[in-house]
């Protein structure tokens, strides 16, 4: 197949999102999202609902805009000066980008875990306690202790670190660091957790632990996960959204996406074919 000769205009190929981007009573709903970096458009007219207590995986080739979209959800893109976001974002019917919406409050409700484990160079305890202290979630030391312990337990890290809560968070292994970051995030009791390739820097065993954890967290949180590993998306998510060159190509039940995708581009991507 001649790749060079055949370069169809992507905007013709992807006219509208295939599958079921909308759900009943979404936790987060986004409509007609466009994102620009200066004059360059990174995301084109994406509309997607994120259901309550579901794990939704955003997949797609590098530069497809999935991370950009993810960072729009908790307004992390605010810190990038050249970035301009338009469209409608709602968290439980509240406008995320409203003038009255404080990004600090928003980020307390929508937590985020990053690709590279990034614990603060402080003790394990202080890492987890930072968020609750910041937001004044604990009235006294005993309450704070309880939050720290329960967060570490939920993140499945407590048993491993209970004897050294005052040791540095950066001294842990990669997988433990990432679980520490997750514990730190859930210590603030967010409603939604965004995960940007949370396991890409980890070995398979640590990855499996994180995936298991994600599955458990689904009971209490809504999780949006960006991943490059299609197997991971297939394993942890209930719904999968496929992005391509800034467009949302297909959204659907994960089982369906991985056995019988509807759009040719999705098919090509998940089977590892030339686009």
């Amino acid at each position: 197949m001649n790749q060079v000769a055949e370069a169809p205009d992507i905007h013709q190929v992807i006219k509208e999102t295939v599958g079921s981007p909308f759900t009943d009573k979404p936790k987060i709903s986004t409509r007609n999202v466009d994102v620009f970096y200066d004059d360059k458009q990174a995301i084109f007219d994406v509309s997607l609902d994120i259901g309550n207590h579901e794990v939704i995986a955003l997949i797609g080739p590098s530069g497809c805009g999935k991370s950009t979209y993810l960072r729009c959800l908790n307004r992390m893109n605010d810190t990038i000066q050249s970035c301009r976001v338009t469209g409608e974002f709602r968290l439980d019917e509240e406008d995320i980008y409203a003038r009255g919406m404080d990004p600090v409050l928003l980020r307390a409700r929508i937590g985020m875990v990053f690709q590279k484990p990034n614990p603060f160079p402080k003790s394990i305890y202080d890492n987890v306690a930072y968020g609750p202290k910041l937001h004044g979630l604990a009235g006294n030391r005993a309450e704070l202790d309880e939050i720290v312990v329960s967060s570490l337990q939920k993140a499945g890290l407590y048993e491993e670190v209970k004897d050294r809560l005052n040791a540095s968070g950066t001294g842990l292994s990669g997988g433990q660091q990432q679980r520490l970051c997750i514990a730190r995030t859930i210590a603030v009791s967010p409603e939604v957790i965004l995960m940007d390739e949370p396991a890409s820097a980890l070995d398979p065993i640590a990855t499996a632990t994180i995936e298991e954890l994600i599955d458990e967290l689904r009971q209490n949180y809504t999780i949006v996960i960006v991943t490059h590993s299609m197997q991971q998306a297939a394993r942890v998510s209930q719904r999968t959204a496929y992005f391509h060159l800034g467009k949302l190509v297909e959204v659907g039940d994960t089982n369906q996406i991985f056995t019988n995708p509807q759009h040719q581009l999705t098919e090509n991507y998940i089977t590892g074919r030339f686009g």
Partner: peptide, 27 residues
């Protein structure tokens, strides 16, 4: 100072000033 530290603090809901003075400047 690695940007990941800034991201971490911001994502936890620290304000810009808190991020800078509690994390970036000490580092």
């Amino acid at each position: 100072v690695p940007p990941s530290i800034r991201d971490a603090a911001l994502a936890l809901g620290a304000s810009k000033v808190q991020t800078v003075f509690q994390h970036v400047v000490p580092l």
